[in-house]
């Protein structure tokens, strides 16, 4: 199985120069106050992993992987584990950068604010990827990408309407009460989302005819 994880990590490594340049641009923008670094986490992780799916499809890796020992099982598992590794690495980099930039600008360390923001963007990243991967396996990157954009915009539009016309105060109260336990609720929800997504992807891939 390690080989399948390596395959995705080596693909990411192949694009490391472009990623480093992008990161540098964002750091400069964050220093100038033009961009919040927390945005970088979902953007980078989703973009990087999406490109691995595109390369896989272009070179029909999914079919080739099945000819390898335990290919159907380990190909999907490898993708999810590589994603988790990537998310951990980018989260560490972005957390360190966020603290550095915040401190350089304000000379204080606002631990709760920064961790809260990072955790929020981590949640968004995992939510997006949890929906994206099964769609990628089912429909391929081209269709899945369009589908994801439609869903994200759809949710944003519906959300806009709901907040305008529906009284959400009871729900906000409930979220506030959960909020005190956010250090537990958020990670558990994220792990659960990824696990369900992995199981769905594996089911799709297991039945897939190539």
């Amino acid at each position: 199985m390690l080989g399948f994880i390596k395959k995705d990590l080596l693909m990411i490594k192949s694009n490391i120069k472009i990623l480093a340049i992008l990161l540098l641009i964002y750091i400069v923008m964050a220093f100038q106050g033009q961009m919040d670094l927390s945005f970088l986490l979902p953007f980078m992780s989703v973009m990087i992993m999406m490109s691995t799916f595109s390369y896989d499809t272009f070179n029909k890796w999914d079919a080739y992987a099945i000819t390898l020992p335990n290919g159907r099982k380990n190909s999907v598992r490898g993708k999810y584990i590589a994603t988790i590794i990537l998310i951990i690495v980018t989260t560490i980099i972005i957390t360190a950068l966020s603290f550095t930039i915040f401190y350089a600008k304000t000379k204080i360390i606002d631990f709760e604010n920064i961790i809260g923001t990072i955790l929020g963007s981590l949640f968004a990243t995992i939510l997006l990827q949890s929906f994206m991967y099964p769609a990628m396996y089912k429909f391929g990157p081209e269709k899945a990408r369009i589908g994801i954009f439609v869903v994200v915009f759809g949710v944003a539009i519906i959300g806009g309407f709901v907040t305008k016309y529906v009284d959400l105060s009871p729900m906000i109260k409930m979220l506030d009460s959960i909020g005190t336990y956010w250090m537990i609720v958020f990670p558990v929800t994220m792990i659960l989302m990824l696990y369900i997504s992995y199981k769905v992807s594996q089911r799709i891939y297991f039945k897939k005819e190539i």
Partner: peptide
């Protein structure tokens, strides 16, 4: 060992 028509590792490797 299998060699299939146009199915292989991603080309950036």
């Amino acid at each position: 060992g299998a060699v299939l028509d146009d199915m292989f590792f991603p080309e950036i490797l």
